[in-house]
């Protein structure tokens, strides 16, 4: 494991295959969903949009948990720091995709690309929050300093999400309620839609896991490269010293 130079393994291969299968199924089933009366062709976005949103929450949750594990002295290990950073990166991508697919859906349905409804505003704030977190991680610092700083920032970020939630929720509410809460009888989300949506959740979760394993391994390789280049530089300087008269 420590001498690995690539990021592929049996685990990523099987995760990747499962993710590809689930995604292919989601796309195939999503495209064959019937167009609904109210939303027309765009209702099919339900196959991927809620799944993307779920994966972004999962990613930020993992970041928070890994950060807490790093801060807890008994479980402190650089692997939690790498996991937190990698997960946040993927979470940012999923949040951006959530906003993009939501916009594509909102344009024909609400008539505008963007409305200032509670959940959109919250997602946009969350995106900004974690972009800040990633920017903080890029600030050059010793590994331990970076880890502590990032872990505290991640916990602060996750703590402010509920406050943001209440603020924007009271501020305005237009978004339809939570997707799964709408599956009560008599609702227009019928079985096939729910099934495809749940498959979308599974697919996005698998994609997230697959990306995460690869990203953590890349981060570990980056750290190793840093260490090695330092050792190589030291070695060169020593040789120069020997050569010098």
């Amino acid at each position: 494991m420590t001498n690995r130079t690539g990021t592929a393994s049996a685990l990523t291969l099987s995760l990747g295959l499962a993710a590809a299968l689930a995604l292919a199924g989601t796309v195939a089933l999503g495209l064959t969903l019937p167009a609904t009366v109210e939303q027309g062709e765009y209702s099919r976005l339900i196959a991927i949009h809620p799944g993307l949103a779920w994966a972004s929450y999962l990613a930020f949750g993992v970041t928070a948990a890994a950060s807490a594990l790093w801060l807890w002295p008994r479980t402190r290990s650089s692997r939690w720091d790498l996991l937190a950073g990698s997960s946040a990166e993927i979470g940012v991508v999923f949040t951006a995709l959530t906003l993009a697919t939501g916009s594509i859906w909102g344009r024909p349905t609400w008539g505008v690309w963007w409305v200032w409804d509670a959940r959109l505003t919250l997602s946009a704030l969350m995106l900004a929050l974690y972009l800040g977190y990633l920017a903080l991680r890029r600030v050059p610092a010793p590994v331990d300093v970076r880890a502590r700083r990032s872990a505290i920032a991640a916990l602060l970020a996750v703590a402010v999400v509920p406050v943001n939630h209440f603020a924007v929720e009271w501020w305005r509410t237009l978004h339809q309620g939570r997707s799964l809460a709408q599956t009560t009888p008599g609702n227009d989300l019928d079985g096939i839609f729910v099934g495809v949506m749940l498959l979308g959740f599974l697919a996005m979760t698998l994609v997230y896991c697959w990306l995460l394993v690869h990203r953590v391994r890349v981060a570990r390789l980056e750290d190793r490269l840093d260490e090695q280049s330092l050792a190589v530089a030291l070695d060169e300087r020593r040789r120069e010293a020997v050569l010098a008269p």
Partner: peptide, 18 residues
């Protein structure tokens, strides 16, 4: 950090949105 001027608004403003 040398990027303090630009980093602080990015970190602080989304947090104080509420």
């Amino acid at each position: 950090s040398r990027v303090r001027e630009t980093l602080l608004p990015l970190l602080l403003l989304p947090v104080v949105a509420p």
